[in-house]
Amino acid sequence: MMTEKKQPEEIIEMLDLLRDVPKRDASRRAAGKAQFLAQVKRISEKTVSISWFARLMNVSRSSIPNYRLSTLTIGLILAMLLLTFSTTSFARQAQPDQFLYPLKLWLEDQRVGITSQTADIIELRLDYAEERLREMEQTNLNLSNPALQNSISNFMYNLAEAARLIAEDPAHEPLLERLNSLQSRFDELISRLQEDQEDKAKTSDDKSNQFDDENIDDDREEENEPDEDLDDDNEGLNDRRDDDEVESDDTDDEEDITDDKDSAFEDPDDSDDSNDPDDGND
């Protein structure tokens, strides 16, 4: 007997017979859930330390605003690193009278602070003391200049710290020789700086005297002026020369003037004036 084929709706209705399934075993369900949560915990513990980094680098999965934030964050971090690196590099080369010099000293202190071995600390202290000496030797600053004074103080502090640490442990005595050498260099340098300072003071005194002599010459010129008015210029000039010369001869004027200039000023350094580095420093 031919059975009429069922309509699709009837087939669909029959499929409801398959809706019921055997009840799931509760213990197996619980075991499956426990296994799942254990895996969650395992992965969570593994990813906690890198989650911030993963979020930072999660460009492909983020919406556009987050993408921009990630790029901006990366850019800011790179800019800060570059600024820090460049500032630190410039600070290391700073001189006592420069803006970054305090940063240089601070960085040195930090480096000592993170050093654990006493021998390394002593070496660092001596290195920094030597660096202060180099700065003082290269500088053109006056001994009374606050920047130079700061440098000197730092040198003495580093040297004192090194000496204290050496005294605490005889094993560090080999470094004492270097310390003494630095001290000697420092003493010589200070002496030299003091001499230079005194020389400058003396030079400034001499120059002030020079001005007095010129005043005398001016006075002499003033005295000669009436003569110039009465006589022609050449004669007036000769008169001035006559005042300066012991004996005058027109043909020997130039030579005589030179000689008399030497005798009038009596300054043995006149011929070195053009080479005197202190001329412009007073």
């Binding site: 499956g32 949560l37 969650v40 915990k41 969570s44 990813t47």
Partner: peptide
């Protein structure tokens, strides 16, 4: 990786998937 949310996901979908 909110653990409570993941537990809820398991409760909600494990039976239908089964």
């Amino acid at each position: 990786f909110d653990q409570q949310a993941l537990a809820e996901i398991y409760d909600r979908y494990s039976d239908p998937l089964y």
